[in-house]
Design a protein around this nucleic acid. Structure first.
Lengths: 136, 136, 136, 136
DNA sequence: GTGGTCTAGACCACA
DNA sequence: GTGGTCTAGACCACG
């Protein structure tokens, strides 16, 4: 539909399947992949990225376990309908802590960090609105 | 002096050395380890955590590369003096993005996330003040 | 393909891993290992040199940090594509100073040193051309 | 006589005694310490640098073995008279090779390296002349 | 005493 | 198959 959207860096310390997981989750969160959107097939994605199909399959399996995507036999893979349930927020709190710790060690103070946070939040909302606009 | 401060989970998917890196960075950021403070020796920490000294040494090596600690042969390991230089903030931006993505997939909206952010920021400052108070 | 290319001296004051680092950098600089070339695996090199795989792995880790090689899990180790960016030349300046100091203490004067420098430079270029010729 | 001339970095990977050896050799080569010049005593130097006297003693022992300094019992330590004998130049050739390898991996070409070499050579001679001038 | 190097050998993750 | 992690234990260099 829109050609290559993902890319992987084989030299990264992060496993390729993890890079894929992160990117697909980010694409969904950013509004590029709205709920119900069909994803490329394992083979197609593997071909585009020039990586092993097993690696793509592993990423899809993890995303399915996390409830991000749904696989329908014979049809393909789709972005899941967002479950409105607020599950366990532990992972979110951990990421928040990690953010603060990283900021400390880079010499970024509370004020500067708050500003970065608000900027990121605004950009995020803006991106989602633009995607919505596209659909009209 | 105050017994066990760190702990590791050998069954975690996160490597032990990485768990140690994270905890020591968090302890330093939280004010538990002020700049110049001496850390437990490799052998001592390995003994406390019941892990191999090489694993501790690896964590220390990574922390030194990140500028968090300094190792001096024959003397010991110390929390680095803060360089105060504003380095590369890429890693911080990445963590911010990860935070937003995680929030999205857990159904946490911007308002709720902002509240969590402010709460975490306040707790962090409070913790550091308490540490300062201890020193008096 | 061409048998043993490296060798280490376990009795040297220089750590084995450092000897390996130096030799691999020299081999790459001499044109024996062009960018993208695959290196022997950790196990294979350890076997050839009769040293522990961990020691080879440490050398590889350092070379990767210096941007000389790239390690890809499950695939192997490769000479990095030259980044062409002009980085920090401090280490080079230090080596130059060391050269002059060494020359002084060996009673080698400026003229003689200049001659040695030019000779080494010519040999270096010649060596690289021969390697290129081999490829034809 | 002229206060602190040397300094050591306890955080460096290079052993302190080696840092001292290098600096004293460099000072002698640069003309700051002409042959016959008396060096500070072990205790004095250790006190100035706030390091262990054993460390200074080790540096002096190595310098004596290399023929850079001479110790006269009851009198002190002195820069040796330069032996005009051109000994083994192997160490010099090795340093030259290291210089070329380092230049390659930093993307510094032959022309640029030659220029740096000539500049360093000129600065070196200039420094020595200035020192000579001071003595008049 | 400290950290640094190295070994022999196990098990796991990745592609 | 590759590299990555971890262990147990030895020996060395440094200050």
């Amino acid at each position: 539909m829109f050609g290559l959207r993902f890319f992987v860096d084989p030299r990264s310390a992060l496993p390729i399947y993890q890079q894929l997981v992160n990117q697909i989750k980010a694409a969904a969160a950013g509004g590029l992949y709205p709920p119900g959107q069909q994803l490329p097939s394992v083979r197609e994605l593997a071909g585009q990225l020039a990586i092993n199909p097993n690696t793509v399959a592993k990423a899809f399996r993890i995303l399915e376990e996390q409830g991000v995507i749904e696989r329908r036999r014979g049809l393909g893979t789709f972005i899941a309908q967002k479950p409105a349930v607020a599950k366990d927020l532990t992972s979110l709190r951990i990421k928040l802590q990690e953010l603060l710790v990283e900021a400390y060690h880079l010499g970024v103070g509370p004020q500067e960090l708050r500003q970065m946070f608000e900027t990121a939040l605004n950009n995020w909302n803006k991106g989602k609105e633009e995607q919505r606009g596209k659909g009209n």
